[in-house]
């Protein structure tokens, strides 16, 4: 299905681009968004506010779109969850503005966008890298309705002074156990960035989770 979308004509893509723009100033806005992403990844569980005014096709959120515009290009195969993959304006938007190839096999993706946490497949379907090249692993952009750093699970590890509370709304059952397994495979593993409407938080593989 994604393959069929990929054959969408250039005229369609341009129409989408006209209605849903990328960054006005790609150089400076992607730099600003990158610093948000870097702060999030360097301080797991900490919520970082993003000041964005982006009009993007639903069900994509501005933070997710901004992260994609900042990090994705023709070198980064992208996987979309099955629901998002059927939304033509969304895949057209990403292909047009990022130029990234869409892949159907989750294991081949450098990045994945999960538009709804209910659609999150088991973490181990994504590339976790190898012991020699643990960086060859996927980064997941997971959209959630709400982020909370005052309660929830307790995070410890690099980037966290002592401990950090963290909660994201709507994660599937068994998620935190998968995160623990992901951590126990260190240095292999996937890294996650949670995107709410205007805030993000990250959970790299290095973080220990206490449920």
């Amino acid at each position: 299905m994604i393959g069929a979308d990929a054959n969408g004509s250039g005229a369609d893509s341009n129409a989408i681009a006209a209605t849903s723009a990328g960054f006005d100033n790609p150089v400076l806005q992607s730099q600003a968004m990158y610093r948000n992403l870097l702060s999030a990844m360097a301080q797991p569980g900490r919520i970082i506010s993003c000041d964005l005014s982006l009009e993007v096709p639903l069900p994509l959120w501005p933070t997710t779109a901004a992260a994609a515009l900042t990090l994705l290009d023709f070198d980064t195969p992208l996987w979309l969850d099955p629901v998002a993959a059927t939304v033509l304006p969304l895949s057209d938007y990403l292909r047009f503005h990022c130029g990234c190839p869409l892949v159907q096999a989750s294991g081949n993706a450098a990045f994945a966008i999960i538009s709804d946490p209910a659609e999150l497949p088991p973490l181990n379907v994504f590339a976790a890298g190898t012991d020699e090249y643990p960086d060859r692993s996927a980064t997941l952009l997971i959209q959630v309705e709400r982020l909370d750093d005052s309660r929830g699970v307790i995070l410890r590890g690099p980037g966290i002074e002592s401990k950090q509370c963290f909660q994201a709304k709507g994660l599937p059952s068994g998620f935190w156990q998968q995160v623990q397994e992901n951590h126990s495979g260190f240095p292999q593993g996937v890294d996650m960035i949670f995107c709410a409407q205007d805030r993000i938080a990250a959970l790299p593989r290095s973080t220990q989770v206490e449920v």
Partner: peptide, 28 residues
């Protein structure tokens, strides 16, 4: 801005994020 082209910056930015996620590992 900052000399590097945007594609290069994205590539380096991704490498830095992986480096942060895997403390002490040398990302090519």
């Amino acid at each position: 801005f900052a000399y590097l082209d945007e594609q290069t910056k994205r590539m380096i930015r991704r490498a830095i994020l992986k480096g942060v996620a895997i403390p002490g590992y040398q990302v090519p």
